[in-house]
């Protein structure tokens, strides 16, 4: 039993290296916030583009569907590797400006920004599907009422459909956000020392896995309240539904 605790719950070790793992986790938080917000916005843009009406805009819809298929279909890890190596290569060969190919905006490192981009591209595709479900769950009568009042498709979407759709999909979006937050760990492969990489660094130096445990605890401190928030949102919607408002 002592071995078990010394391995996984070596509190002395955790205390000694608390700051190092916390710094890593702080990066995790920043990455998930910036990447999450970008993915939420990008997903909404994709969903709206996918709903554009008319035969003339069919190519746009097809393009969006293709995009979503591609980015839902390849591993995030691969997207991270492709983006970082691809952009860096193009920048060094002068095909794109260095500030874009090797981004170091707002004092964050280039792996951080490659991570943001990859998370946005991949999770934007997931979230677009969530938004789409929300848009399709708004009754057709809402669009008809808006259009009968003379609103354009865009106005009906903006003022009537999207606000209702987003409210409906807050719980699944939060779920996706939790998943995104955990997937930030993948950005460690291109050298970002976030919470998981911090644990690896400690393990390779001291052969004590408790750094991982500390990282896990940090994750849980954020993800468990988020999970409760999802439950609460669902419950709130349920009550509304029972009052007769879908």
């Amino acid at each position: 039993m002592d071995v078990f605790f010394d391995t996984f719950f070596n509190f002395q070790f955790m205390a000694d290296h608390f700051q190092y793992v916390l710094d890593g986790f702080w990066l995790t938080i920043k990455l998930s916030l910036v990447g999450g917000i970008c993915a939420l916005i990008w997903g909404l843009i994709l969903a709206v583009l996918r709903q554009l009406p008319g035969r003339a805009l069919a190519p746009v819809r097809a393009l969006v569907i293709g995009y979503i298929d591609v980015f839902r279909g390849i591993p995030l890890l691969l997207v991270i590797l492709l983006l970082s190596s691809g952009l860096a290569t193009m920048a060094t060969q002068g095909a794109i400006p260095r500030e874009i190919g090797i981004p170091e905006w707002f004092g964050e490192s280039d792996p951080f920004w490659y991570g943001v981009m990859a998370l946005t591209l991949t999770y934007g595709a997931y979230m677009a599907e969530v938004y789409r479900a929300g848009i399709e769950a708004v009754p057709q009568g809402q669009t008809e009422a808006a259009r009968s009042l003379g609103m354009s498709h865009g106005q009906a979407m903006r003022f009537v459909i999207i606000p209702q759709a987003v409210r409906k999909v807050i719980p699944p979006l939060l779920n996706d956000y939790i998943a995104l937050m955990k997937d930030t760990a993948l950005v460690s492969v291109i050298g970002l020392v976030e919470a998981v990489q911090a644990g690896r660094d400690l393990y390779s130096e001291f052969y004590v896995p408790s750094g991982y445990t500390l990282g896990a605890i940090f994750f849980l401190i954020v993800t468990i309240p988020l999970a409760r928030l999802v439950d609460w949102q669902i419950k709130k919607q349920h009550e509304k539904f029972q009052r007769g408002m879908p």
Binding site: P139, G141, Q142, E144, A145, S148, L149, P163, Q164
Partner: peptide
């Protein structure tokens, strides 16, 4: 043209 529907279709938000 104004239209009124069987199912009201008020904007619930």
């Amino acid at each position: 043209t104004g239209m009124v529907f069987q199912s009201f279709n008020l904007f619930p938000n």
